[in-house]
Simulated scan of single mutants.
Amino acid sequence: MCELASKCWTQHITSFTSQVIKATINVVFQATDMVDTAGERQRLGRRLGQQIAARRKAMDLTQDQLAERLEVDAETISRFERGATVPSLVTLDRLAKILSSSTAELLSASSAAPSDLAIQISQILAELTPEDSEFVVSQIKALCRHFQLQVRK
């Protein structure tokens, strides 16, 4: 009787161990699928760098000025723009705010980015009080309507 119980117990342990090993292998393969490859990271870094550089230039900022606002070295901005380094998520979020953008826009392959003028106007408005900002926007709208009417005449 003891021999039979021992045999059953051994088979049960062997079956359980086999299941644990299979589950572990599945988890390892799934985790491997979630890890980025060096090529993907480089492509993302270059694309992000191009977006950062384009936004910075549209706002008439130098790398030094952007670095100062982000509280990093200018070399860090240079590395970001070259795609040599990818910023952390926290830094990326701060960069997006400084560049009047969203993290999604900075990461997108094809940007539906506003024009350089829109970015400049947005930056100017951001420095005003909300009331002054509303006034400037109303004046811009009035001027646009005026010019549109002139074109129709």
Rank of each mutant, 00 (worst) to 15 (best):
E81L: 04
F135Y: 08
P87Y: 08
D116T: 10
A74G: 01
Q123W: 14
R94C: 14
C144R: 11
S102T: 15
I140G: 06
R82Q: 13
C144W: 02
D73P: 00
S138V: 00
V151C: 03
T91H: 04
R152L: 02
I124C: 07
V86M: 07
L117F: 06
S133M: 01
V90M: 01
A118T: 09
D116R: 11
S110I: 07
A126I: 06
R94A: 10
L125F: 04
F147Q: 10
A142Y: 13
L106S: 10
V86P: 01
Q148W: 03
P114Q: 00
V151F: 09
R152D: 14
L106I: 08
S100T: 02
D116S: 08
S138R: 04
L106E: 06
I140C: 11
S108H: 06
D116H: 11
V86S: 03
I98C: 03
D93P: 00
K97I: 09
D116K: 05
G83S: 00
S88I: 00
L149S: 13
L89T: 11
R152W: 04
T85P: 01
R79N: 11
F147E: 14
A142C: 02
T103F: 02
F147S: 02
D132E: 14
V136S: 00
L89N: 07
T91Y: 10
D132I: 01
H146F: 15
D93R: 07
S100K: 06
S88Y: 00
D73R: 04
L117D: 15
T129E: 08
D132W: 12
L117H: 09
S110V: 12
L128Y: 15
I121M: 03
T91S: 14
A104V: 08
V90K: 00
A142V: 06
A142P: 03
